[in-house]
């Protein structure tokens, strides 16, 4: 199967339709992805508009998941997109991922550390690749997680309690936008078995102030509980390289 065909078959599940999720959805659809589920409990607010680029003033007050789905259909009428207007709780992440079709990739686009760890663990547990991103200030990070390489929990161990947030530390719209597009690029590369081997397990870290983009190579942590519970990939392009 060609990468283009795989992109069209793949079900991209974008959890969080905010500063990361909007550009991730745009990037995926621009690359040829056509099947989406968008999960977000919030409504569009005026203060979101400068960085949550799928929305306009007309969507203020509307559920983000619905508004993002509508915006994608406006761009590409043939697109298949489901909107889920609710919060995905960390405790529900495993059941949520288990119920996804095998040809799914999850993009964790929220600002909730606990959910990043929960989706990392659930993706490994059920053989579903997960792309995890974050942005703060001028910085962004992205990692694509699958069995056999360092996962998010290998790198950071457990959810911290006191990380600065965009509310407390601010974020440049360009930085969160770039992080979302980097996430889309990572998710697209998972559809290509050759690129996937390069992408997965690498921590991409950029900082706009210094103009730097690093590809860091963390290693799997010994006794990582998420890696210990990892199952073979259900996602076809990764099965050969798992």
């Amino acid at each position: 199967m060609t990468v283009s065909a795989q992109l069209q078959r793949t079900h991209f599940v974008v959890v969080g339709a905010g500063g990361l999720g909007c550009p991730a959805l745009l990037g995926l659809s621009a690359a040829g992805a056509r099947r989406f589920t968008i999960v977000d409990p919030d409504v569009v607010e005026t203060s979101n508009l400068q960085r949550q680029v799928l929305y306009s003033v007309a969507q203020v007050g509307r559920a983000k998941a619905d508004a993002a789905a509508w915006a994608l259909r406006q761009r590409i009428p043939a697109i298949e997109v489901d909107a889920i207007v609710r919060a995905l709780r960390p405790a529900d992440a495993s059941a949520f991922v288990a119920a996804l079709p095998p040809e799914s990739i999850v993009l964790e686009c929220t600002d909730a550390p606990a959910l990043k760890f929960a989706l990392n663990d659930a993706g490994l547990e059920h053989g579903t690749p997960v792309v995890i991103g974050a942005a703060l200030g001028l910085r962004g990070q992205c990692i694509a997680v699958r069995r056999g390489v360092a996962c998010y929990r290998c790198i950071y161990e457990s959810a911290p309690q006191d990380l600065p947030t965009c509310e407390s530390a601010g974020v440049l719209g360009v930085a969160v936008g770039l992080a979302g597009f980097v996430m889309a690029s990572a998710a697209v590369s998972l559809c290509d078995p050759q690129q996937a081997a390069e992408t997965t397990g690498a921590l991409l870290a950029f900082e706009l102030g210094a103009g730097s983009m690093q590809t860091l190579r963390p290693r799997p942590r010994e006794r990582c509980p998420a890696c210990a519970a990892a199952q073979p990939s259900r996602f076809p392009p990764l099965q050969a390289s798992a």
Partner: peptide
């Protein structure tokens, strides 16, 4: 030498 802390923003 890079010091890389976790970040979690993205809204």
């Amino acid at each position: 030498v890079s010091i890389v802390p976790a970040i979690a923003g993205g809204r």
